[in-house]
Design a protein around this nucleic acid. Structure first.
Length: 486
DNA sequence: CGTATTTGACCTGCGC
DNA sequence: GCGCAGGTCAAATACG
């Protein structure tokens, strides 16, 4: 936005400076560049010779005036009435040009003001981001300390828990892994280092200025450079934040489901925009984008499994920027939660391994339903795969104590379901992309920290929702209410 | 006729 | 630099 506006303003300035015949004039500063802008009398020269020469000039030439787009018809007539008409038209043309120029100037000033406001906005956002980031680190640190304290007790309780092979196969670290012990501390240290680097960057810029010029030049120069330093620093932070944002946008949730139909119904409207043959798979991959909202960034890929063509793999990517229908909301919230947990520090260690908390939660998911959740660390962007194709043989009561099991559509206890849905809704149902990633992570972390059953509830909710769909997918009904992520 | 889908061309990132 | 594969675009086509 800022860059766009800047380039637009630069273009405007160039246009103006091209038009303006510069004279000694007051200067305007734009983005550190000096612009010479003044009110120019385009007709000054012509005025001088106007009285004596204008008639002849007009007769013999097509007037050396800027094209004012007025249709000034010049004839060879020498009658006085025509002459006075032409003079009137000429002065009108002058006035028009002057008015246009004044209008452009005022527009430029407005844009300058807007530019200033945007700068302040970016700066404020940057400050808020930093504050939230620090809070997140504190929370993560606190949470990890709590985990360490309760680790022994938890381990005793969960000794009989079955961890699925699919999770062990992907190299998940266990609590005994000593590298996990300092996960939060390392992360905190990394963030401190980043902040230190930024600060030192500012300091070095300042020291460069301090040594730079004579005192006379110093003041003006410092004004400009400090503005630039602030701007660059902001851009660095914005880059950092945007990188994080792009990560969460790129995070994917993949759903494997056994179905004959070409696409699972997930409550959203999709428009197909491409199809491609993927290597090593006889079935084409289809590309869809969400058509429910204008310019909604959410996309999904649908492809049949190469190994088992009855299995449909649907991969969701991005966050919806519009209000979702209730049928799509549940899954969207759920997959948002998974995605954000996936990307928050509470899930992944700095080693790229899955945090023990999530291991437990994911194990809960896998054990609690006919579903396996796996995390791909090798993919360019984090991807969680929910496998709905496994046969219903697992005991679902191992972790979700009190969860009713008589209902294949909802194995989630009503209390936990409500808790989960309200949490997920509070956290993720922002409806727009503008919801801060940091807010999301903070909220997710806070929710998990506040409620030890949250993780289990979350996973149970996923299986509940997907489980319902799954049974539909495998059943005769084509009306599958499957959600997509975010 | 407006909207959705198809499909070949094009772009981009990555490995060699 | 080149080729490959994944992803996207947009003109052509189909459909209601």
């Amino acid at each position: 936005m800022y860059k766009k506006l800047t380039s637009k303003m630069e273009a405007t300035c160039n246009d103006i400076s091209n038009v303006a015949v510069t004279q000694s004039s007051p200067t305007m500063s734009f983005n550190g560049k000096r612009l010479v802008v003044d009110e120019i009398d385009f007709f000054a020269e012509k005025k001088k010779k106007k009285k004596s020469e204008v008639d002849d000039q007009m007769v013999h030439h097509q007037m050396e005036l800027p094209n004012t787009s007025l249709d000034l018809l010049i004839t060879n007539s020498t009658s006085t009435s025509n002459r006075s008409n032409m003079e009137e038209e000429l002065s009108e043309a002058k006035d028009n040009t002057r008015n246009k120029f004044v209008a452009m100037l005022s527009e430029l000033q407005e844009m300058n003001a807007e530019n200033q406001r945007l700068r302040e906005l970016v700066h404020n956002l940057n400050n808020k981001y930093n504050a939230l980031h620090k809070d997140l680190m504190k929370l993560t640190h606190k949470q990890h300390e709590n985990e360490i304290n309760g680790a022994i007790k938890e381990n005793d309780k969960r000794d009989d828990m079955i961890i699925p092979r699919s999770l062990l196969d992907i190299g998940i670290a266990t609590k005994e892994d000593p590298s996990q012990q300092h996960y939060s501390e390392r992360k905190l240290q990394e963030s401190k280092n980043i902040i230190d680097k930024l600060d030192s960057g500012k300091d070095s810029e300042k020291s460069m200025v301090d040594q730079h010029e004579s005192p006379a030049d110093h003041k003006a120069l410092w004004g400009w450079i400090s503005t630039e330093a602030t701007r660059l620093s902001s851009l660095r932070d914005v880059d950092q934040a945007s990188e994080t944002m792009s990560m969460i946008k790129k995070a994917r949730v993949s759903v494997r489901a056994r179905t004959d139909s070409s696409m699972i119904s997930d409550g959203c409207q999709w428009r197909k925009y491409g199809q491609k043959m993927a290597k090593g798979n006889p079935c084409p991959r289809s590309y869809y984008r969400c058509s429910m909202g204008t310019a909604c960034p959410v996309r999904k890929q649908v492809q049949r499994s190469a190994e088992d063509q009855s299995v449909l793999i649907t991969t969701y990517e991005g966050q919806h920027n519009h209000v979702l229908p209730p049928t799509a909301k549940a899954m969207a919230s759920t997959t948002s939660a998974v995605t954000s947990m996936l990307l928050s520090g509470s899930m992944l260690s700095s080693d790229g391994l899955i945090h023990p908390n999530i291991l437990e939660s994911t194990a809960a998911l896998s054990c609690s339903q006919n579903t396996a959740a796996t995390l791909s660390a090798s993919a360019p962007f984090p991807t969680i795969t929910l496998d709905l194709t496994q046969s219903a043989t697992n005991n679902s009561s191992q972790l979700l104590q009190g969860a009713p099991q008589d209902n294949q559509h909802s194995l989630l206890s009503p209390v936990l379901a409500q808790k989960f849905m309200s949490s997920a809704t509070n956290i993720f149902d922002q409806g727009t992309e503008t919801a801060s990633f940091v807010d999301t992570v903070n909220a997710a972390t806070a929710a998990i920290t506040a409620d030890p059953k949250f993780s289990a509830a979350l996973m149970a909710a996923i299986t509940s929702i997907i489980g319902g769909s799954h049974s539909n997918i495998n059943g005769t009904s084509g009306d599958i209410q499957h959600g997509n992520n975010n």
